[in-house]
Simulated scan of single mutants.
Amino acid sequence: MKLPPYNIFPNITGDKIYLRQILISDIKDLVEISFYDAVQATTVKQATVMQVKINQDYIDGNSIHWGIADQLTNKIVGTCGYYRGLDKGEGELGCVLLPPYRGQGYMTSAMALAIEFGLNTIGLKRIWAATSQQNKEAIKLLERLNFIKIADLDDNEVEYELKK
């Protein structure tokens, strides 16, 4: 296994998007989708503090968090990454997309790139995701990416695992 941090932060290029490190200049556009420990930011200051914690988690080898950038504009349209379990050879894959970009294939592309990185670069043996039972779009995304439901969790959440 090759866990973070890496000598150079991994930027991953796809067809329409690429995954890159989030810069301080990106944060003002990401407040509404900035989360840490299931708490959502409501101000740029809160989102900045959260990003500092996310960056520290990466430095500590516990996670990797990418901005999903549109190749044409370099604008961050969402985020995705692995947030738990890396030390055990597994990764909880999470994602969030700004509302104007939903339904356009951004997240499918981003998650496919993140899955490939998790399997082939980090060397994960298990990739999983959790979401609300009401989040039908996330469930459709996970199923489209070959995840299968494995558990109903507390708080009306469901867990999915990548089927290899």
Rank of each mutant, 00 (worst) to 15 (best):
Y6R: 10
A130M: 09
G61R: 11
L124Q: 00
N74T: 14
Y82H: 03
Q51V: 03
D26R: 11
V52A: 09
N156L: 06
T73N: 09
T79D: 01
S63H: 05
I68R: 07
A151Y: 08
P4V: 04
I12S: 06
L72M: 08
I8W: 00
K45L: 08
I139W: 10
L124N: 01
K28P: 06
S34K: 03
Q56R: 15
T79R: 07
Q56C: 09
D152P: 03
K16I: 06
P10Q: 00
T43M: 02
P10C: 02
I64K: 04
C95S: 15
I64N: 02
R144T: 13
P10A: 00
V39F: 06
I27A: 07
Y83H: 13
A138K: 05
L119Y: 09
M1A: 14
D87K: 14
A69S: 15
L3C: 02
D70Q: 10
K140I: 12
G14N: 06
K149F: 13
L141S: 00
V39M: 07
M50V: 05
R126Y: 10
N62H: 11
N135G: 00
L86R: 09
F147T: 03
N7Q: 14
F147S: 08
I22Y: 05
G89I: 12
N146Y: 13
G94L: 07
K125P: 12
I148V: 14
T108N: 12
A129G: 10
I127D: 13
L124P: 08
E159L: 13
A138E: 10
Y82S: 01
L72E: 14
K136Y: 14
I115D: 00
I59E: 09
Y101E: 04
Y101W: 09
V158S: 06
P10S: 02
T48P: 15
E143V: 13
V44K: 14
D87G: 15
Y101K: 12
L97F: 00
R84H: 12
Q51G: 04
L23C: 04
I54Q: 02
K88T: 13
E32T: 14
L97K: 05
M111R: 00
S25P: 04
V52I: 15
F147I: 03
L153K: 10
D15G: 05
D70F: 03
I115F: 04
V39Y: 04
G67Q: 12
Q40K: 13
K149Y: 13
L162I: 09
L124H: 05
G81A: 04
K2Q: 15
L98S: 00
A41V: 00
A69V: 09
A151T: 08
I22P: 03
G103D: 11
L97H: 02
V52N: 14
L30P: 11
Q40R: 13
S25C: 06
I64D: 01
S34F: 03
Q51H: 12
A130N: 09
P5T: 10
I27T: 08
E143A: 11
D37W: 05
L93R: 02
T108K: 10
W66F: 06
H65F: 05
I115L: 09
I68C: 02
